[in-house]
C-alpha cells in the first residue's frame, strides 16, 4: 500500500509541475460548452420541456464534463516513462506492478476533480444551477472524475500494449464517437430512430444522463444508479485489462 501512496504522490506532483499538460486539455470542454450553448440557446429556450426551466447550458454541462475528464494523460505519462527507461526502473524495484497503475489512476482522480470543478464553475457562470444542490455538485464532480479514472485505463492499456507515444496520444480519439453517439444535444426521444438505437446501446449515454439528472432534475436514483453502474463497470473492465497488461509486460 505504501508504494501506491508513494507513486500516487509522485504522479499527482506531476500535475502541478506540468500545467501545460492539463490546461490545454481543459480548453476543449470549455470551448464546446461556450460554442454549443451559444449556437443553440435560441433554438432551445428555457421553456423547452427537457431543460426543466434552465438554459441549454445545463443540458450541455455533463457533455463538457465528459470531455474534461476523458483524457490519455496517464497513458502518455506511462509511455513516456517506458520510452525514457524509468518504467524499467520501477519494474526492477521490489514492488507490485499494479502499484504503478494505481499511482497513475490516483493522479487521474485528482486531475478529474480539478478539471470537472473548472467546467462546473464555468457552467454555473454561464447560468446553469444545480437542481440537486451543493451535495449534487460534489457528486457530479466526483462521478465525472471517477469516469475519468475508468477511462484512463484505456490510455494506459494502449501505452502498455503499443509502447508507442503517438498511438497512445491518439487513443483519446476513440472517445469522440462514444461521446457523440449519445443524447448529447437532445434527449433520446428527439433523436432519429437509428441514432436513438445507437445511443441507447452506448453506455456513455447513461453516464451523461445520470450527470445531467443531477443538474436538471435533482436526485433521480434510477438515472444516477445507471450512471454509477456504467462508471464502475468501465473502471473495473479497463483497469482490470491494464493490470493484466502490466502483469504480462515482457512476460
Amino acid at each position: 500500500m505504501n508504494e501506491v501512496l508513494l507513486l500516487s504522490r509522485r504522479a499527482v506532483r506531476e500535475i502541478s509541475r506540468y500545467p501545460e499538460a492539463t490546461i490545454p486539455a481543459l480548453f476543449i470542454p470549455l470551448f464546446f460548452l461556450a460554442v454549443n450553448v451559444g449556437q443553440v440557446s435560441e433554438t432551445f429556450p428555457e421553456t423547452t420541456p427537457f431543460l426543466g426551466g434552465q438554459g441549454y447550458v445545463a443540458f450541455q454541462l455533463p457533455v463538457s464534463l465528459m470531455f474534461a475528464v476523458a483524457t490519455a494523460s496517464s497513458g502518455l505519462a506511462l509511455v513516456t516513462e517506458i520510452d525514457n527507461g524509468y518504467f524499467d526502473k520501477l519494474l526492477a524495484a521490489p514492488i507490485r506492478r499494479s502499484s504503478i497503475i494505481f499511482g497513475r489512476l490516483a493522479a487521474d482522480l485528482v486531475r478529474g476533480i480539478l478539471g470537472s470543478t473548472v467546467v462546473l464553475v464555468a457552467g454555473l457562470a454561464l447560468g446553469a444551477h444545480m437542481e440537486s444542490g451543493v451535495l449534487g455538485a460534489v457528486v457530479l464532480v466526483l462521478l465525472s472524475a471517477l469516469f475519468g479514472v475508468g477511462y484512463a485505463g484505456f490510455g494506459i492499456l494502449v501505452a502498455l500494449r503499443t509502447r508507442n507515444v503517438q498511438a497512445t496520444n491518439t487513443s483519446f480519439l476513440l472517445f469522440f464517437p462514444l461521446l457523440f453517439l449519445t443524447p448529447n444535444f437532445v434527449p433520446f426521444e428527439r433523436l432519429t430512430p437509428l441514432m436513438e438505437a445507437l445511443a441507447r446501446a452506448n453506455p456513455v449515454s447513461y453516464v451523461i444522463e445520470g450527470l445531467r439528472s443531477l443538474v436538471i432534475e435533482g436526485w433521480d436514483l434510477d438515472k444516477l444508479g445507471a450512471c454509477i453502474g456504467v462508471t464502475v463497470a468501465l473502471g473495473v473492465v479497463l483497469t482490470g485489462l491494464s493490470l493484466r497488461a502490466i502483469a504480462t509486460y515482457d512476460r
Binding site: 506532483r13 506540468y18 527507461g85 524509468y86 524499467d88
Partner: peptide, 17 residues
C-alpha cells in the same frame, strides 16, 4: 529484486522530479 541494484542502459530518471 530486493537484493539487486539496477542501472540500465537507458538512464531511468523521472524528468519531473
Amino acid at each position: 529484486r530486493r537484493r539487486i541494484g539496477v542501472a540500465l542502459q537507458e538512464i531511468g530518471l523521472d524528468p519531473v522530479q
